[in-house]
Simulated assay, not measured.
Amino acid sequence: MVTHSILLASEDWCKQAASGKVKVYDFYVGRKKGIRSLSPGSVCVVLTKVSNIFYGEFKVTKVKLVDAREYQELASKGYIHEPQQLKPSDKVWVLFFDEFVEYPIKVRKEALTNVKTATSKKPISEWVITGQSYIDDQALEEIRKIAGKGLESHECIEMKLLEVGNLLGFKTYTADTGKKCGDIQLRELTSLKPEEIARNELKRIDVVWYDEVRAIYKLFEIVLTTDIRTSFTNFSELSDLNADFFIVADSGMKQKFDKFRQNRAFSIIRERTRFIDINELNKLYESTKRWVEHAKILNLPQLQSTM
């Protein structure tokens, strides 16, 4: 079971981390309590020291006790914001991370009157947080929900997948043609009609990409509230297709994905099934749009429909 945490930091630290400059969270010299319970994959929610707001979060990639020399090397690279002055004999615990995710909604701690861990008697709004406080998956997901992380709807994720597929020259289909993301009707983005879908099982898949020339499918299932087993079962029914399978979900679902991927019942699709974090999909969506805009000068056949 991965342990998560609430950490304190200045608002300036949060801004530097959100900009991508800061890559390390450093504890004060002598701090030892509880740090060893954090591990790669732990999510740290950052609470600002003065304004008492949840600013964002990062996922730990490494937990390490560094000496003064290594600490100074990290500081010289700009990975540590406002580094401490250490004595040659000092050692400091640090957390490495790749990306800091800023929350769309900045929530004050006092507002979390209904957010608890599975074992806590008091809500987080009543906690006294002086440096670090552990939370479980239950509390983490509630904080994320209130702070707006992962609020994208199923339909808007489908919209992005359809747009990326179209931009990359695939024919596309969604099982939810009647649904909308904002003012955009999903059926307006598809190029495959239901009657052109060769298999009834394909019609249940959230998003389908089809390479007509090579007869290759890319199949996507979005898991927000549904059981991940259902998606694996849907994919297994299509195991005879020349296809790659993708589960699109929040990063917190990765452990469940790995568990089902190793299930013997799904061994036939194991090597063709991958996980896509919603944050990574958003990056793919934006970068693909930018790339296609620049690539138009090449007059590539697969991009003709986007020009």
Rank of each mutant, 00 (worst) to 15 (best):
Q72Y: 11
K109V: 01
I135T: 11
L192C: 07
K256N: 05
Q262P: 03
Q302T: 02
R270K: 13
L47S: 02
A9I: 04
N279G: 14
D250Y: 10
I143D: 04
E126V: 08
I80W: 00
D258N: 12
G182Y: 02
E110K: 15
E163K: 14
F257N: 08
Q72H: 14
Y28L: 13
R272E: 00
Y25D: 00
F58N: 02
G131M: 05
F170Y: 15
E280T: 15
R199T: 01
N166R: 10
L219F: 08
F54M: 10
D176A: 15
T3M: 15
S5H: 08
D90S: 13
L74H: 09
K179P: 00
Y55A: 14
T225D: 14
N282V: 05
R290Q: 09
H4F: 08
E73S: 12
P104N: 01
E163P: 03
A147I: 01
M159N: 06
F100G: 01
D98V: 09
S239F: 04
K49I: 03
Y285N: 06
T172C: 08
R69G: 11
E221Y: 09
I53V: 11
N242F: 10
V63E: 12
F97G: 01
G56A: 08
S133G: 07
L167F: 11
A18R: 05
S267W: 08
E237T: 04
L65T: 09
I247Q: 04
I184G: 03
